[in-house]
Design a protein around this nucleic acid. Sequence first.
DNA 1: TATTGTTATACTCTATAACTATA
DNA 2: TATAGTTATAGAGTATAACAATA
Lengths: 174, 174
Amino acid sequence: MPNKNPSAPQKSALPHGATQSAKPVSGGSVAAVDKVDTTYLQTLMGYNARRAALSIIELFLERLAPYGLKPVDFSVMSTICHNPGVTSRQLCATLNLLPPNLVGLIQSLESRGLIERKPHPHDGRAVGLHATPKGQALMVQAEQTATELELEKTAKLTPAQRKTLLALLQKIYL
Amino acid sequence: MPNKNPSAPQKSALPHGATQSAKPVSGGSVAAVDKVDTTYLQTLMGYNARRAALSIIELFLERLAPYGLKPVDFSVMSTICHNPGVTSRQLCATLNLLPPNLVGLIQSLESRGLIERKPHPHDGRAVGLHATPKGQALMVQAEQTATELELEKTAKLTPAQRKTLLALLQKIYL
DNA sequence: TATTGTTATACTCTATAACTATA
DNA sequence: TATAGTTATAGAGTATAACAATA
């Protein structure tokens, strides 16, 4: 029984105006769809957040390609820059990544001369990650490019709406 | 030259209080990071939207698993239910999918008896997709489960904030 | 015993090129 | 010539299990 409370309206997974017992049009109900209705999906936060994120990431990939940075590379490099000495494990916890998937990424950044690995002061197991001057210089440019691209993609929003949107999104995942 | 306008403050990709010319602490600057600072990433819409989406999708996968539906399966089935006779090409355009990736998905839904393929009324190349009674019944339940799960994940938001968030996200990708 | 970092590997998701049948 | 649907396949992203070194 989908409706425990009959007074509360529920979504129906049926076309507008249709009911569960509605019969098909005579001849087999083969009408063409002119405009696709996505009313229901647009009520889902997961759907809208994903579509918005992918829309921004699409442009991100294009604009950040000259820096050789994809979204995850960018967020890792940025976090290292702003947190010198951060460990892999801390990056995983902060950015919601899995340790095995970070290994190759860190090695790549190191071989490009963007970061350095130094022994951790207290913990012999851990390794502190530090951006090199080259890495820092790259990220100053990359972060500016990212910020600009984001302002373009959110051009329909006022500064106040943009601030509101950021705060509300963080209420979901933080 | 990163700053065309020196009077406009810019993000620096450097730790708080640090400057490009700041020298490392004596001994090699090997201080441990206690709390990771993500201030900059949190100013990016792409980052926040992605993190929020993944947070919701994580629970979505768990709750919708009994229905055998993953996010894309769900959005496809839902769109077919609400738009009887919709074509694959229309689904691709609406949901931002690529045709080759939809083929196996449609075949799977058909072999499960959730949808039927009927000839298109005007276009001999196209195929109209229709949810079977079994598929419709499944989606009534699945959509209710999805809606409930979303309300849980957005529990920190007021109904007004939730509505605002949906509208603002759509301003980005629509 | 628990944790950091690592290796190997499997699985899923996404993207590209090329083909057919019809418009 | 253009479009709908399909096939095959490659690449990227994400996941689990297990191991060595250190706490």
